[in-house]
Amino acid sequence: MSLDDLSAAMQDSYSEFDDDLTVSLDRETRNELAMLETALEPDETDELVRRAIHMLFQSSVETGSLDFHLRSGFDVTYDEYLSGMTFDEMTGADQYPTMDDERRYQF
């Protein structure tokens, strides 16, 4: 997989989301959501879900978990996705031909 594959997968996922996203909650999640809503008193429960997604995303970026999964699935990192270029493309490493070790030091 590549940077282009990741971009295509992101566009596909984004287009599948409607304005209203229905999520089923298990008992533990429902209990935790009720506690957060009671304690934080947001205007709407949706606000807590948005915050939770932001926190999970930020945590995944900071711990390197997102990069690990992106590297495993698409062979790119989040920084490469943001820049639109792979590290090799940024440094020019993909522009040079491979070295032939047998003839490397022959004149």
Rank of each mutant, 00 (worst) to 15 (best):
S2I: 12
S2E: 14
L3E: 10
L3K: 01
L3N: 05
D4W: 07
D5V: 14
L6R: 03
S7N: 14
S7R: 15
S7F: 10
S7K: 15
A9L: 08
A9V: 07
A9H: 11
M10C: 04
M10H: 13
M10K: 11
Q11L: 05
D12Y: 07
S13T: 08
S13C: 09
S13H: 11
S13E: 12
S13F: 07
Y14K: 13
S15P: 04
S15G: 03
E16L: 10
E16Y: 09
F17G: 08
D20L: 15
D20M: 15
L21K: 05
T22R: 14
S24F: 15
S24L: 12
L25F: 13
L25E: 06
D26K: 02
D26W: 06
D26C: 07
E28D: 14
E28F: 07
T29E: 15
R30C: 04
L33W: 03
A34G: 10
A34M: 10
L36F: 08
E37W: 05
T38I: 06
A39F: 08
L40R: 08
L40W: 04
E41S: 13
P42I: 01
D43T: 09
E44V: 04
E47H: 11
E47W: 04
E47Q: 11
L48S: 06
L48A: 09
V49R: 06
V49Q: 09
R50C: 13
A52Q: 06
I53F: 12
H54P: 03
L56T: 09
F57A: 06
F57S: 02
Q58V: 05
S59A: 12
S59E: 12
S60H: 04
E62V: 00
G64L: 00
G64A: 02
S65R: 07
S65K: 08
L66Q: 00
L66Y: 00
L66I: 00
D67H: 01
D67R: 00
D67P: 00
F68V: 03
F68I: 04
H69P: 01
L70M: 04
L70A: 03
S72R: 06
S72M: 09
G73D: 09
G73F: 03
F74I: 01
D75A: 13
T77W: 00
D79R: 01
E80M: 00
E80S: 03
E80F: 01
L82P: 04
S83Y: 03
S83A: 12
G84F: 02
G84K: 00
T86Q: 02
F87S: 14
D88H: 03
D88C: 02
D88T: 06
M90W: 04
M90V: 11
T91R: 01
D94N: 12
D94M: 02
Q95R: 08
Q95M: 07
P97T: 05
P97C: 02
M99C: 07
M99G: 04
D101Y: 14
D101A: 09
D101R: 08
E102H: 05
E102C: 07
R104P: 00
Q106L: 13
Q106Y: 08
F107E: 12
F107I: 06
